[in-house]
């Protein structure tokens, strides 16, 4: 397992150096995040996204990009997981019943 970390590190770095020199504050990954949220990025795309943010010289804009990406993702997550029906809720009720039983017996 430990032997895999250098390989993972190397692959991440090699993907991380794909950078858009033309418009670093408006790169491909930044646009993708703005449209689809942070979690639309694959793990292999995260280094590229971070490099694009690092290459953007306008620090105020970087902060805005990060905050809006974070807020959008939190809103999407809340929207996608607000309903709790079917098997997942059934499983939760079983766990609650088990805990209540263990607490009183």
């Amino acid at each position: 397992m430990v032997k895999l970390f250098p390989l993972l590190f190397f692959v991440s770095i090699s993907f991380g150096f794909e950078k858009d020199q033309e418009a670093p504050c408006n790169g491909e990954k930044i646009q993708k995040v703005a449209k689809k949220g942070l979690r639309s990025l694959k793990i292999s795309e995260i280094p590229s996204y971070l490099v694009e943010l690092k290459n953007c010289k306008d620090k105020a804009k970087v902060k805005t990009i990060k905050n809006s990406a974070n807020e959008k993702q939190l809103e999407d997550d809340a929207e996608n997981n607000k309903s709790f029906v079917g098997r997942t809720s059934g499983c939760a009720y079983c766990i609650m019943a088990l805990i209540v039983y263990l607490a009183f017996v």
Partner: peptide, 12 residues
């Protein structure tokens, strides 16, 4: 094995 839901934004 874990199931979850968000009652409000940021809270799970």
């Amino acid at each position: 094995f874990e199931t979850f839901y968000y009652p409000r934004k940021r809270m799970e």
